[in-house]
Structures are given as structure tokens and as C-alpha cells.
Design a binder for these strands. Structure first.
Lengths: 347, 347
DNA sequence: GTGAAAGCGCTAACAC
DNA sequence: GTGTTAGCGCTTTCAC
């Protein structure tokens, strides 16, 4: 099955290939020629080959999208957002799932490089260095939902004074890589203040791999109440989420409230609490990140910090597509605390 | 930022481009030459351009994946399966979300054609004809999770006799397009028999767009109990799911059990039941398609028909990748009824 | 065992 | 306005 090429169209229309190319890309041509070429092209069901064009233009169109896990509703929404924007721009999207594994992430970046995909949107899993090769190769990259951990010297851990100021982690001072982020700081702060208002003092944070910004925001919001022992982070797998939740809830009997840094973590927390006979919100108040559909169906309905998943993706796609124009700045999208039934006064 | 090409490597290694190409694709070369080329390539951080190769070989590598909605956990899992298999084969995956819209589906097929993506995995949304152009263009396509509706004359509706035989809808007699499907027939049958065993007679089915096989399987399983008025199908949107659920539950007070053909539908059913003051399983027994994470967290925990989402995707990817070898046959994967707490005896 | 050269489908520079 | 032509990076004959 041979593909119809521009040459076929040119011959059938009795014109040169350049003319066909011009007509199809809106260049100048006489009315008559234009119509004939268009007619012939339609009749032959001609589709310009993106491969040919890409080779010629030294850059593949299309955009790459790297997310940790498509099974997570948040990333599903994010992907839908990217796809929607890309589609309206007629761009194909090459998707990769990193499983929150920096190594896999690097491998996928290499794959995109090989495909000459020169614009990518990513929820980064590793550190910023993984993106060196991509940047050096001239890729336009936009981070979404997360940024690589700062490689700040970890022996200057956390200064209580600094934590009180409102701007410890600005959307990254002047990083070369723009990012579209949810306002975690404000989301977590709202949640923590809500819990504090309910009388809770021993509030734990259950985080996933990476997601350093949320943890930092939690520490900041807790202020002097922060206790490193109540901040645990699980690996990417479901099992490790349960293990972490279980470990936390069992060894720390004085915990009366928990913030789960993602829906998988929240799920683990709910199940673990049930197993342990902890009632929500009677014995344990729970706030979960991400307003997934089941949050409302859960018993009790879960109070959540909602992120605009789809918007995050859409905006990121806009940024990466219009990157040519102005220097893209990072974007911060609002989060919202949706109060349902999983939090109560300290018992 | 110019990309390192095969020519650069050839020059730096003091050999011809053909030699570089051979070495890199495992062709014959002297030990010494091979080592030198490899060293130079590594040193220059050379990556062969997929675009160049694709153009030369008249076929883009990579595989296309078309799903209705990445926000749905089932399709997220399915995509993860495809991605996992594709990655192990080193193939990029171009993903499109059809929103269950045949028109959008056709548009995305066109986009894949333009990209010269010649292997695609799809959860079809439209009828079989939408795939004509793809097939004619030489695409290898594999359906997954669903097949286009049969264009059987609808005025010969359903023959009760035929419905009793065990093989009314085999994995498609000898269609040109192979499919990887979950065994809906057996899944639905098990669920319906379970409900019948509980004493239910007025069992409704709430389906989504398309998904004709499940509906057919439901009719078949119901046998003489089938009532067309209890079979309703919603559109793709969340709203239409609620509307359908609401309409069904309000107008048909004698319904004591409901099978929801997908997790979005199940969600709508649970919420609607709550609004209407119908208790589950007291007033209404519910079986839902797809074992999403929240099914267990719901109140009550939902009895579900589980499909192996990830496997479906993985197997489909295998099929589409090995398509060159033997004539790929369709695959039927088992479903499982997971009994939890949403079904009770007829009140 | 290796190099020179053709050509995949396309666009852009240049000639007419 | 339109045709001719030169490559984009690569693989693959075909000579040597």
C-alpha cells in the first residue's frame, strides 16, 4: 500500500511539487491553480507526510508528555488538558509514564530526543539534572504540577524564622524552565489552619515520592507545631503507601489529624484507619490532596484540597506551544479546600 | 543547537556514513572499526534521528493509542499497559482521547495517518467504517476493550432462542481487525445470576455510549426477564450519566437491582440513589463495572465486575507489535465478580 | 569490510 | 505564479 505523495498530486494536477506545497500551506497561487490542486488532492485523499516535513524542517512537531502514573485521576485529568490543547493546535502528543522513577524518566527523555520531539511537558520525577541533556539539545520544556527538588544543601535544614515568611519557595526564582503549578502553599496552609482551628495539634503528613514543595509547604504551615516524626513519605507503589500509613498510624497514637499528599495516599490512609479501628473523623481527621470522584462517595465523604488538574495540563500545553513568543513565565493556579465530612474537632 | 548527525560521527571516526549506520544497527564491521565508531558516537552523544530513519524506511515507528477518556481509571490502566509494553519495545506511543465522539475519533485517526503511525490500538467509539481509511492506508489496528457495533439489521432484534446459546457474539467471526476484550458476556452473566439468586427480577442496566457488547450480554443473561424499558444508556458526559440514572430510578419504582456499565455510571447511580433516599443495598442492589479503587471505600463497598485493565492494554500492544508474525487472533480476557456489600436480597 | 551515492516526502531558495 | 532543485538524516544497494 503505497502512500500518496506530493509528487502524485503534482503530476495529476499537472503542476510542480512546489506549487502543491504552496497551495497546501496557504502560499500564493492563482485562483485556478489553487482550486485544481485542492480538488486533485482531495480526490486522491492526499495527506502530507509529517515525517517528510519534519525532516525537512529539522524539527519534529508534536509534544511529549511525561507523567508519573496515568492510573492516578489527577494525572489523567492533567493529560486530558494537555491533549485538548494539543489537539486544537493539531499537534500529536507522545505520552510516557515514568512511575516516579528518575531512571525511567531519563530513558523516556532519551526516547523523545530520538524522536526529535522538541517540546515536552513533564511532571518531573528526578532532579533538575536529568533535564540537562534535553535542554542542551534545544528542547522547550515546561514542568507541570511539580518541580524538581531544589538541590539546596540539606545540612542547612529548615530555619524556623525563614519558614514564617510568606515566600520561602517562590515559583522558582529565575529558573530556565517555566512551570505550571497548583498553589500548594496556599492549599496546604488552608488545610492546616482548618485543622488547627478544629483543635488539632498533632497533625501528620503522609507524602509520596518527590513532591518536595508540598512537604515544605506543610512544614511552613505547621510552624512551631511541625514535628519531623510526623512527616513520612511513601514510595510510589500502593504497598508502600499502605506500609507508610500503617506505620504512621500505629506508632504515633497521639496523631489526631492527617494530611494525605495524594489520592493514593488518602486511599491507603482510609483503609489503614479502618483496619486499625480508627474512626474518621471521630478518632482521626483526614484531609486529602486531589478531589477525585470517590472522595464524595467515601464514608465519610472526604475533605479535600482540590487542584485544577485539567487546567494545569491545558496551561502547560499553551506555554509549551507559544514558547516562541514571549519568554514564558511560570504560572500558579489556585487550589481549593472542599470541606466534606472527614474532619472533626480534636477528640 | 544543531543536532549531531551520522555524518558528524562518520567524519570524526574517519569512516563513511554507511559504516556508522552498519555498526549501529549491528551489521558487519571489523572489530577495530566497530570499537572506534562506538567510542566516537558515545563521545559525541550521538542519537540516531528517528525522523531520518522513518522517512527512509517509509514507515514511522511508534504506536497510536486512542481511548475515550484518560480520566476514567479503566482507561488509565489500559494506557499504562500499552505504555509498559511499548516501552519495553522501545516504541513511542502517541495518545489521543476521543471523548467517545466518533467525529473526534476520525480526526485523530487522520492525525495518526499524517504522522505515518502505522500501528494503532483503539477503544473504538464510532462504527467500523471510521476505520476504513486507516485500514486502506495499511495501518495495523487492534481494538481493545470494545468493538465497533455490529451493523446488524436492527429490525431483527433479539431472538430468545438464539440468546440462550452460548455463543451469540463470538469475538467477531472473521473480522479483519483483531481485538483484545474482557469477557463481558461471562462477567455480566455472573453478575445477573448473582442478582437473580438474591431474588431480584426487575434488574436495570445503565450503560454508556457504545459498549453494545455489554448491553447484549445483559439482555442475554436476563433471558425472559429482560425488559427494554429497564435498559437505558447515557451519553459520555457526567451530567448525562446522572440524568439517566435519575430518570431510571425515579420513573421505575419497581427496580430492585441495577447493573452500572462503568465506573462513571456507578458513581452517578450511587449519588442518585442517595439523593432519592434509596438505601444500598436495602432498597437497591448495585453491581458496577470496573473495580476502581474507590469501590472498596464507598459506603457500602461496591460489588463489582473487575476487568484486567492493564492486561488488556499490554496484550493489545503485544498484538499490534508482533502483528508481522502470525495472523493475530482476538483475545478474550477473564472478568471477575468481586462481591462486596452493595447487593442484598430483594426487599 | 568499507565507501559513494541514491532517494524516502517535503519545503524553501532560486530561476524563469 | 510557477517549476526546478537542493538538501534535511538515514538505510541500503552496489562497487570496490
Amino acid at each position: 500500500m503505497k502512500r500518496t505523495t506530493i509528487k502524485d498530486v503534482a503530476e495529476a494536477a499537472g503542476v510542480g511539487v512546489a506549487t502543491v506545497s504552496r497551495v497546501l500551506s496557504g502560499g500564493s497561487a492563482s485562483q485556478e491553480t489553487r482550486e485544481r490542486v485542492l480538488a486533485v488532492a482531495a480526490h486522491l485523499d492526499y495527506r502530507p507526510s509529517a515525517v517528510g516535513r519534519n525532516l525537512r524542517q529539522q524539527r519534529a512537531g508534536g509534544i511529549g508528555l511525561l507523567v508519573p502514573d496515568l492510573t492516578d485521576t489527577l494525572y489523567g485529568r492533567l493529560a486530558e488538558g494537555v491533549l485538548a490543547c494539543a489537539r486544537s493546535a493539531g499537534e500529536p502528543v507522545v505520552v510516557g509514564s515514568t512511575g516516579d522513577d528518575p531512571e525511567l524518566e531519563a530513558e523516556l527523555i532519551g526516547m523523545l530526543l530520538e524522536q526529535s520531539v522538541d517540546r515536552v511537558i513533564a511532571v518531573p520525577s528526578g532532579d533538575a539534572e536529568a533535564w540537562g541533556p534535553a535542554i542542551r539539545a534545544g528542547m522547550t520544556v515546561v514542568f507541570v504540577g511539580e518541580q524538581p527538588q531544589e538541590d539546596e544543601p540539606s545540612d542547612e535544614p529548615l530555619d524556623d524564622l525563614l519558614m514564617l515568611d510568606g515566600l520561602r519557595t517562590p515559583p522558582r526564582p529565575d529558573s530556565a524552565i517555566p512551570a505550571v503549578l497548583a498553589d500548594d502553599r496556599s492549599g496546604v496552609r488552608t488545610a492546616v489552619q482548618y485543622l488547627k482551628g478544629l483543635g488539632h495539634r498533632r497533625i501528620a503528613y503522609l507524602g509520596g515520592p518527590g513532591r518536595a514543595r508540598r512537604v515544605a509547604a506543610f512544614r511552613e504551615a505547621m510552624g512551631t507545631l511541625a514535628d519531623e516524626e510526623l512527616i513520612v513519605s511513601a514510595g510510589g507503589s500502593r504497598d508502600s503507601a499502605y506500609a507508610a500509613a500503617s506505620g504512621l498510624l500505629q506508632s504515633r497514637g497521639d496523631v489526631t489529624a492527617l494530611v494525605a499528599g495524594g489520592s493514593a495516599l488518602g486511599e491507603a490512609a482510609v483503609l489503614t484507619a479502618r483496619e486499625l479501628g480508627l474512626r474518621i473523623p471521630g478518632d482521626l481527621s483526614l484531609v486529602m490532596y486531589d478531589d477525585v470522584p470517590w472522595a464524595e462517595l467515601c464514608s465519610p465523604p472526604l475533605t479535600v484540597i482540590a487542584q485544577p488538574g485539567q487546567d494545569l495540563g491545558y496551561r502547560a500545553a499553551e506555554l509549551v506551544l507559544r514558547s516562541g513568543a514571549r519568554r514564558p513565565r511560570s504560572v500558579l493556579l489556585p487550589t481549593e479546600l472542599i470541606v466534606r465530612g472527614s474532619c472533626g474537632p480534636r477528640r
